[in-house]
Amino acid sequence: MVLIGLERNSLRVTNGSNIHSIFNTLNLQRLFLKDTALTLIDRIMSFNKISRLLGFAVLIGLILDVLMIFAWSPTDSSMGWVQKIMYIHVPSAWTSFLSITVAFLFSLLYLWKRREQFDIIALSAVEIGVIFCGLALITGSIWARPTWNTYWTWDARLTTTLILFLIFSGYLLLRRFSEPGDQQARLSAVVAIIGFLDIPLIHLSVVWWRTLHQPSTVFSPKQNVIDDQILVTLIFSVSVFSILFLFLLLNRVELERRNRLYMKTVMTVDE
């Protein structure tokens, strides 16, 4: 139990769940949202509504996705059931790249505009990106074991993903080792920007270094080697993961925002 005196009114806060009452009393939430990118959306709909809507979409999407993967799309003739992991592997990799791109854009925006909101979005995107990067690596090794008879191959795209995972884990470590604030936000933004710009070079060099992976069958303009049903399922998976990304991002951003707001409130009370 924490007893916090705010200005002349005293507020009794029992635990984190009552935090809303502080925000409402101080009208800080409005204040904080005032100059953020989400203002417009916030006016139309509350965070809770969007979050619930997205959450619902993700739930339905995932159920449909599982049905499509296991009941509808044909089992691969050469690889068998193992090939089904592709529907997790590819969207995970896709989502991680999407996250890193979002982080890159918001890092640039932060350095330009210096709005805390952009820093929060960049941080949240990197966290999600690192998780999906990890997922892509794990599913990749599970897939590699029966297919190439090894857990790890220095295949170009897997290797790039691994390096990406390392760079952005470094980003998160930098966050842990520094104090929150403008300096942390600036330094992390710089790392995110150079990390992102390095990706094409890393990929190119790794491709030249060694290529074992099957060429990117989905997006290559050559003849339609991939089955229509497989393709549709894959695209559907990727879409569901993208919505999942949005859902996670929105919630993580809101969580971070509330956390920082809470810390700021506590700090002013401290005086």
């Binding site: 929150p180 604030g181 700021k264 700090m267």
Partner: peptide, 8 residues
């Protein structure tokens, strides 16, 4: 000027 959570 803010430093982290504190306003200086």
């Amino acid at each position: 000027k803010h430093f982290g959570y504190k306003q200086v």
